[in-house]
Design a protein around this nucleic acid. Sequence first.
DNA 1: TTGTATGCGTTATCAA
DNA 2: TTGATAACGCATACAA
Lengths: 345, 345
Amino acid sequence: MANITITDIARLSGVGIATVSRVINQTGSVSEKTRKKVMDVINEYNYIPNNNARNLKMTQSDNIALFVKYISNPFFSKMIDVIEIEMASRGFPLLIQNVDDMTDELDVAISESMQRNLCGVMIMGGSYSSYTEAKFKQLGIPCVLLTVSTEGNVEPSLYSSVIIDDEKEAYKATQYLIDMGHRRIGFLYKDVGNVVTPNILRFRGYKKALEDNGIPLDENLVSLSAPVIGSGFRVGFQAMKQLMLKNPEMTAVFAFSDVLAIGAAKAAIAVGKKIPDDISIVGFDGIEMTEFYNPALDTVYQPATEMALSAVSLLHGMMNGEKSQHKVYESVIMKRGSVKKIQDN
Amino acid sequence: MANITITDIARLSGVGIATVSRVINQTGSVSEKTRKKVMDVINEYNYIPNNNARNLKMTQSDNIALFVKYISNPFFSKMIDVIEIEMASRGFPLLIQNVDDMTDELDVAISESMQRNLCGVMIMGGSYSSYTEAKFKQLGIPCVLLTVSTEGNVEPSLYSSVIIDDEKEAYKATQYLIDMGHRRIGFLYKDVGNVVTPNILRFRGYKKALEDNGIPLDENLVSLSAPVIGSGFRVGFQAMKQLMLKNPEMTAVFAFSDVLAIGAAKAAIAVGKKIPDDISIVGFDGIEMTEFYNPALDTVYQPATEMALSAVSLLHGMMNGEKSQHKVYESVIMKRGSVKKIQDN
DNA sequence: TTGTATGCGTTATCAA
DNA sequence: TTGATAACGCATACAA
């Protein structure tokens, strides 16, 4: 079934292709009579313009793409939802593409941008260290980083970013546990190799808070989880099991993500521990699931909706020639009872 | 920054554009010497072929798109992951597009297919009733429905499908509760209006099982949840609260999705009920979260990975001229202790 | 208000 | 083994 083209429509309605083009794009002027005639034919034959030809001609497309490092991360799901709806309401269809662990997200963005003639990209997740100035220059279209940023070695005007201060927020969470009397605080952590990611920043915050409180860092309390088959839940579960085995006297755990925290909570419960009586748990991200878990888990809540809206707004701003911006949102520690105050000893 | 084109590469390497094209696509024959020369220039200038021009020329593209009705559904997340990885391993980049509640997923697929010259589409979620024969014909490219199908009024050769028998599986789950001695069984349900969706099929299964066991359907036990702001968790939570209020003697609840079931579990726990001693709960889908919930929840487990792999395989089969197929997978009731056997009365 | 002709960056055909 | 050149479907400058 050879697709119907603008030429067909022109022939069928007895006008030139330029006229059809004008009708479709509502540019130039067309008499109401011909406009109607052409529209009728278009509707009758269900004609849809070929975007490839269109993009090939036009400098500007309205294609925006979102590249997500690990799309099934529940924390990202909510943001994707918000971004999708907000983009749609502005009339921009959103293409979503997953980026796997092995792949550099900015490379993909560059490649896709050229291939699909994108007019803007958003990148969610990934690692700080993969963003270089040269790559942003090569990308050449408005780009917003969400939940990640660069290491500061990139000219800030080349991109926008929307993040929280992962190190600071992790520091706050650790300090919170310390203030509640905890000294033996485990850290649930997923090693991702030699790159700077939000996890690593959160780990730094944990270490710094310990240090500032005169608590020596105990490597045994840090789970550099060995590769585990399965999702974050299982990783958290396994890591927590090991941690409890190695540290019977551990009174609290700080997980770098809520998914990990839930897995950890389950592991604690599985060995008969009570939360928070036997072990305190704090997660990170603020996914809705933590609220509905039993017990509800304390977490460092990121304002995901606001951040997503902000990212969309920034991207559109840049597409309209506005300057790039770098927003750092504040997190809030949601206290729901999974942390218990204990006596110092 | 005008993008670099095949013509530039040809000029810079001192050959014709046809030769460059041959090098890129590894078609025809090119002397090793010129091939290397051209490749060097391509790498040096970071040339990436323009897909729009390519698609415009070529009959076949390698663009596959996945249209998801409500992308942040955790049950879909896992499948998206599997599909993404499997497609990538076959060398097909996957475009993902969310479809919102108001939009007909097949219409979007048709439109996007023509606009982006897709060679195959997968559709996940949505409603049986929106798939008509005329639309599949208009689509005109291989199409696999995942987790949904048509109402049987569409020529089966026009599409493939991978589903479970929602009605049968819901029947089994309800029967399971009945076998465990339950008579007052609530059903958590989200009304989506006048269309046939998996939820409705599951509701039918519930009703049928009651009927076959001589238990009259009590409308009070069915939560046609009023619109609730927020996610499925909250919907389940609110609906369960109302259900418990209206039915103090209810001993079990069957939720049409795990997300709803988790919200419901939380609601039960919040009013001091013990699972399963005071109330039994069964979910549907088999998302990983149910395993890590406290307590772990019984659920109708769909073999999501197998289904996703099957869908990918079917799509590629169709793209290679194979016939369409319609696969119905079996679910398994995962028994994890959230259902208790009670005495008949 | 309308139509013709050109070119966007490719691939593929055909000569050389 | 190569290189011109003609499409692909569209938007647009220009002519009518």
